[in-house]
């Protein structure tokens, strides 16, 4: 009985705290994305417009590790039985990717770069072989920041 109370109690706490953290994170991401919106930074192509006009090129990389809260982990476990979109995990990955990309773009901004070429996004689950903890995901975004001669 006590076990059940602890589990249900922690699920309820995690639901509220996790939701609060996620909402704030999304707000923060949106604010920064709007701030960077007009600066065209990310490109997935490998080609510069004109190689002769390039002043400098630097490798920029930024990573983030996001975890999913216990409530989401629990819900995703239930969802897995019936199949379909596991939306609990989707938001975690979405947040991580956007955060990593934003950090990379902010680095490019700090270097006064004009474009980041050949942007790669790498996703790795940090819990090998399904250990009992809720999953953590490491997301890395990197590319070549190019600054053109003005």
């Amino acid at each position: 009985m006590l076990d059940l109370i602890i589990i249900v109690g922690s699920l309820i706490i995690c639901y509220f705290v996790g939701n609060h953290i996620e909402k704030n994170h999304y707000k923060d991401i949106q604010r920064r994305e709007v701030a960077l919106f007009k600066k065209r930074f990310v490109s997935f192509s490998k080609n510069t417009v004109n190689p002769a006009k390039v002043e400098s090129s630097t490798l920029v990389s930024a990573g983030v590790v996001v975890g999913c809260d216990y409530f989401k982990f629990f819900v995703a476990g239930l969802k897995n039985i019936f199949g379909g979109n596991v939306s609990a995990y989707e938001t975690v990955l979405d947040r991580g990717r956007r955060e990593a990309l934003l950090r990379m773009r902010e680095q490019a901004l700090a270097l006064k770069a004009d474009v980041v070429l050949n942007t790669k996004i790498e996703t790795v689950i940090l819990d090998p072989l399904g250990t009992s903890q809720n999953p953590k995901v490491s997301i890395l975004a990197y590319g070549t920041a190019i600054k053109y001669v003005k």
Partner: peptide, 22 residues
């Protein structure tokens, strides 16, 4: 980090770890 993971969100300790490794 394990404690933080319970509530979700960014785990700064591990972000730092991967940054250092990189």
């Amino acid at each position: 980090a394990g404690f933080k993971n319970f509530f979700g969100g960014e785990i700064k300790g591990y972000t730092e770890l991967l940054e250092e490794s990189r």
